[in-house]
């Protein structure tokens, strides 16, 4: 699903490498944590997968396609297959939950009928069946992130990428969010979560890829955050 071989990246010629010699393969249906301190290169790697940036060297294949060689007009279709979840949610705050989800569907050309059918179903999945008409700014942080999750899965992507999805949330709520991500994963969607939330990583016992100063230091099945130490 995602195949990185000998990836290097630097933002400009004079700076050091933000990523160097990264190799891994993520298979369909996996649940993977990407951990490491701030500045380790987690976000850089995630941005590469959605082709916001292109590796300086090496090959990164997503769904079998080399992202560096992907023509610009194919990029939107790559992104429709990847649901993104952000630490700061990135929702349209003045609009309702329904509108936020409808917005993401409309972008892909979905009909109003599809939207009316799909949005309540997904809201139900993230446990907010009665919040369709609530404005996002009136929801709590945990609820907002659930809407973020709902938006990530609304177009039935093959993979979910979450960048510090619990970074702004209390521990209890963080576990709820992780629980939803696991549910999504159980339905067959590949999930990749970048985090430095030690507790969550240790508790879920999933595959963990450690990054440190741009290098992949450890890649273990059923790993723990502490494994890096």
């Amino acid at each position: 699903m995602v195949e990185a071989s000998k990836i290097y990246h630097r933002y400009d010629k004079n700076s050091g490498y933000a990523l160097s010699n990264i190799n891994f393969i993520i298979e369909r249906g996996e649940f993977v944590f990407l951990v490491g301190p701030s500045g380790a290169g987690k976000s850089t790697l995630l941005k590469m997968i959605i082709r916001e940036i292109i590796p300086t060297k090496g090959i990164l294949k997503v769904f079998g396609h080399d992202v560096a060689r992907m023509p610009r007009h194919r990029v939107p279709y790559l992104r429709r297959n990847i649901g993104m979840v952000f630490q700061d949610f990135r929702l349209l705050e003045e609009r309702t939950a329904f509108e936020n989800l409808a917005f993401a569907m409309r972008v892909t050309g979905a009909s109003n009928r599809d939207i009316r059918r799909r949005v309540p179903y997904v809201l139900e999945m993230v446990g907010l069946p009665d919040k369709a008409d609530a404005r996002v700014c009136d929801l709590s942080g945990g609820e907002q992130q659930r809407i973020g999750l709902a938006r990530a899965i609304i177009n039935r992507p093959a993979m979910i990428i979450a960048d510090e999805p619990t970074g702004n949330l209390d521990p209890d709520i963080s576990f709820e969010i992780m629980h939803i991500l696991r549910m999504i994963n159980l339905r067959g969607t590949t999930v990749l979560v970048a985090t430095h939330d030690r507790e969550i990583v240790d508790r879920l016992k999933k595959r963990v890829i450690h990054l440190e100063q741009g290098r992949l230091t450890l890649d273990e099945e059923k790993g723990a955050y502490a494994g890096a130490l």
Binding site: P76, R80, M84, R90, L92
Partner: peptide, 16 residues
């Protein structure tokens, strides 16, 4: 700009 950024993340084409 925020809306546009989100559109890009959810896979809107340039023309859309």
């Amino acid at each position: 700009r925020r809306e546009i950024m989100i559109m890009k993340y959810v896979g809107a084409t340039n023309w859309f």
